[in-house]
Structure formats: C-alpha cells, structure tokens
C-alpha cells in the first residue's frame, strides 16, 4: 500500500518535472523564434504598421518588396558568387585539413609533427584582419584583386587551423591497426588515406564542412576588402550596401535580410536532421 502511494507520488512528481521541462524548453524556443518571426512578418509591413503592431500577422502578403530587393541586390549574380566561394573554399578546407589532420595525428610523436601542429594552432586565435595591409599587397602582387580566388584562398587559410585541430582530434579514435593492416596489404600512405581513413572520417568531415559553410558564407570582411567590383560581390555585401543607404522606408531592408539568410536557412530546414547529427557525431572524439 505504501508502495502504491509512493508510486503515485513519484508519478505526480515525474509529471510535474516533465511539465516544467516542457515549459522551460518552450520558453527558450519562443525566444529563438520570435526574432525570426519578426524578421519575416516585417517584410510585409509598412514602417508605421510595424511600429504599432510588430507581432501582428501582415494584413496582406505583398511580395513586391521581395521582388524589389531581389532586383536591387542583383540576387542571382550575388548568389552565384557566394555559392562558388563557399563551395570551393569548403572543399579545399575539408581536403587539406583531413590530410593534414591525419598526418599530424599519426606523426604526433615526431618533433616535426608537433611543430607543424603548433604552427597551425598559433593561427587559430589571431584575426587575419590585423595583417590586412600585408595580405592586401600579397593579393595584389598575385594579381587576384577582384577575383573570387582572393577570398577563397584567404577563407581556406583562416579556417584551416581549427579544421585541422578537429580532424586531428578525431583521428585519435581511428585505430592505428588499420594503417598497419593496409601497409601489410601493400597500400601506400596516400592510398591508405583515400580508401580507408578518409571514409572513416565522415562524421568529422560533416562537422568541418558545416561549420565552414557557415563561416565562409557569412564572411563579410574578406569580400569587403578584396572584391570591390560589384560584379564580384557576395550577398552580404549587397545587404550591407543597401542597409547603409536606406533612410526613409526601413522595412524595405527586411526583405533583403530575409533573402540574405534564405539560402542557408532553406538548406538547413531540409537537412537539419543530418546537419545536427553530423555536428553531433564529428565534433568530439568518442
């Protein structure tokens, strides 16, 4: 009998805890979503309406703001540039960092391996913008001004150290025995890497790819410095140009902000399960 009472009490307590948990989670979820909701509904409002009733649903779905923003941002071109920069940079980061991470883990007992790793690590904390003049001269000397390659090379470089750091940590979970078995089978280092190791690194590759897609897509200073010609500029630069110039109709920039975050957002909404589990699986060594 006493047991039954205790179970009931436990059940009650459990239910209470569960309810509290849901309330807690919902409050945070609302805090996450309200700004995004505000961003979306304001695109359909006049400044006056947005000021008076910021949370109200728009009275009509007028897409003319989006069409105007789409045209003013020269969206297809800006999208293409952003996409190319991101695609090439992320590919480069993944390739170079996985190779380096593999070697630096396997050679972490060697002086040279440690030294190279320390060298790369030292770059992690230091913002490259500090040496912008030198970088500028370099890019100019290589004749890469106003070329997407300038941003690609810089973006790969600045994001490499942390990617190597992640890859190297992850490699610690891939047993050495695999290398040795491959060696006995007669495979060279490079073949061992491409056929055996690289596929095993998938989880951390996903993490690195996702993190760097965000970093590169959202890099703003690089393009601002190196891509001055409008034909070469990226989505963020288009937003920045227009935001700086708006004076009268402040809701007019909201469609631009939405168009700015839309590509990654859509990608995320469709892929969120894979993205989240990708980052989960690959970020920490097991």
């Amino acid at each position: 009998m006493g047991g039954a009472v205790r179970t009931m009490r436990d059940n009650k307590k459990k239910k209470f805890t569960l309810a509290a948990t849901y309330i807690f989670l919902t409050v945070i979820a609302v805090a996450m979503l309200i700004p995004i909701y505000y961003l979306l509904v304001t695109t359909f409002k006049t400044p006056e309406h947005a000021a008076v009733a910021p949370m109200a649903l728009p009275s009509s779905l007028d897409f003319s703001g989006y069409i105007k923003a789409f045209e003013e941002m020269e969206y297809p071109r800006a999208f293409r540039n952003t996409f190319l920069i991101t695609l090439i940079s992320v590919t480069g980061i993944v390739l170079f960092s996985s190779m380096a991470g593999y070697v630096l883990n396997r050679k972490s007992d060697k002086k040279a391996g440690q030294l190279v790793f320390l060298l790369l690590l030292s770059g992690m904390m230091f913002p490259y913008q500090m040496s912008i003049l030198g970088l500028y001269k370099l890019i100019r000397g290589l004749n890469l001004m106003n070329s997407l390659w300038s941003v690609i090379l810089v973006d790969i470089t600045i994001n490499l150290p942390f990617a190597v750091f992640l890859m190297r940590s992850y490699m610690a979970t891939v047993p050495m025995e695999l290398d040795e078995a491959a060696k006995i089978d007669g495979a060279g280092v490079f073949r061992t890497f491409t056929t055996i190791i690289f596929p095993l690194m998938k989880p951390t590759i996903a993490t690195v790819a996702i993190l760097n897609t965000l970093n590169v897509w959202n890099d703003f200073m690089g393009p601002l410095y190196f891509l001055q010609s409008r034909k070469k500029d990226v989505i963020l630069q288009e937003i920045y140009r227009n935001i700086g110039q708006f004076s009268t109709d402040w809701t007019g920039i909201f469609p631009m902000m939405v168009l700015g975050i839309m590509p990654l957002m859509i990608f995320y909404l469709f892929m969120q399960k894979y993205i989240i589990s990708g980052v989960m699986a690959g970020s920490v060594k097991g």
Binding site: I132, L133, Y136, M145, L224, S229, R230, R241, G244, Q245
Partner: peptide, 22 residues
Amino acid sequence: EYTYVALSDYNNVLSTQLAAGE
C-alpha cells in the same frame, strides 16, 4: 562603375587600398 561604401567604413577601406597601391 560606381561603388558605394558606407561612410563609417569609407576611410578605412580607401586608406588600406591606397596604402597597398590599389
């Protein structure tokens, strides 16, 4: 071809470019 740079960044961007000979 005209490029707009916000006034708050203008000085920095132009100075950097000119200093690098660009």
